[in-house]
Design a protein around this nucleic acid. Sequence first.
DNA 1: GAGTCTTATTTTACAGTGTAAGAGTCGGCT
DNA 2: AGCCGACTCTTACACTGTAAAATAAGACTC
Lengths: 200, 200
Amino acid sequence: MARRKVELSPERIRTVALELIDRHGLDAFSTRKLGIALGCEAMAIYWYYRSKEDLLDAVVDELVVSIARVVDEASTDWVGTLRAVAHAYRKLAHDHPRAFPLLATRRFSSASTFAFLEKLFGLARAQGISDRTSAQFYRVVSSYCSGFALNELAPQPTSLAHLKKFPAVAHVSKWLGEDQLDGIFEFGLELQLDALRASR
Amino acid sequence: MARRKVELSPERIRTVALELIDRHGLDAFSTRKLGIALGCEAMAIYWYYRSKEDLLDAVVDELVVSIARVVDEASTDWVGTLRAVAHAYRKLAHDHPRAFPLLATRRFSSASTFAFLEKLFGLARAQGISDRTSAQFYRVVSSYCSGFALNELAPQPTSLAHLKKFPAVAHVSKWLGEDQLDGIFEFGLELQLDALRASR
DNA sequence: GAGTCTTATTTTACAGTGTAAGAGTCGGCT
DNA sequence: AGCCGACTCTTACACTGTAAAATAAGACTC
């Protein structure tokens, strides 16, 4: 048997898992298919992860870390940092559209998530922003980003048949199209960041 | 055999489906268990719905309709209507915490969704709000509500072990607790509605 | 009332799922 | 050489969604 050749590891497993989800979607993802992609039997995965749920948590973690990196590279200005995080979050949804719902649905209380929050809130405190304010705006902005990204990933095909029966929607639909998404996201985000600036 | 006695119907099926999801969660929901709850075989469901996905779409629809009703009862003021819808949306998440992720994840382009949007946008037009503005604020506010509700449904248990290692998070965590959710939701919502009022 | 058609439901079957339990195989240790 | 612990595979089980066909009951025609 060709054992010990594929060199399984937690990192490789979750990386290949993400690749598989990206390529074929969450529904099609199974431990058996992951095994094939890794070159091992499905059960070998269970040495590194207690369950499929555990593995998916690890995949989410990998994605969170990629956002956390943005905080390091950001300027010292907290508003700017929050903006950068918001954009990174949305970019993540575009880069991994089929994995993103995982991130939006799942509770994440892993160490790397905390490390991310620590950097973000540490920066806020260093700039004299009150804990209450930073907590408020973090929740508001992150909720907005999460919801917005999720919405744009599940786009309705603007059924023309329906539009005939719903004239008001027909009129407004011009401003609901995909070409408007960037602008509206920016609009809503800046609206919130303006309020943050004003609150100081 | 006791046929034709249980009186199956699309409405009953999707209602019992929602009950089952509410009680035991999405993961535990299966066509077989639904069959047992309905008093029929699993395959009988397929006479009324083409697939499990189809059925879940119908469940989502049922939930959307319950929100649409709010628009009828609302005052003529569009800002007030949008606020009422936002609150109804969050209330839905509290009333059906285990079904809500369906609503947030799934594309809904059903007739009842369009009927809802028609009422909402029709009201906006009647009050002279530009199509662009109503589209913008609808997307922003609905994204915010969706993301906020999803976040509060997946609460992290504020791991005390982690808090020792992350002092900034520990300080801020006071404002991130469940007791703050109502206030923060309101804060973020009004922040957006203020901007809507100001834009006129 | 007998025969046929339509609608509703069950039966049977299949390929696929997550994972528990145990068996097997290897490298490195004494 | 023998053993141990770290890995991996094999087997098995209960459960999933649903295609295909069998079946039953009412409605409709003659």
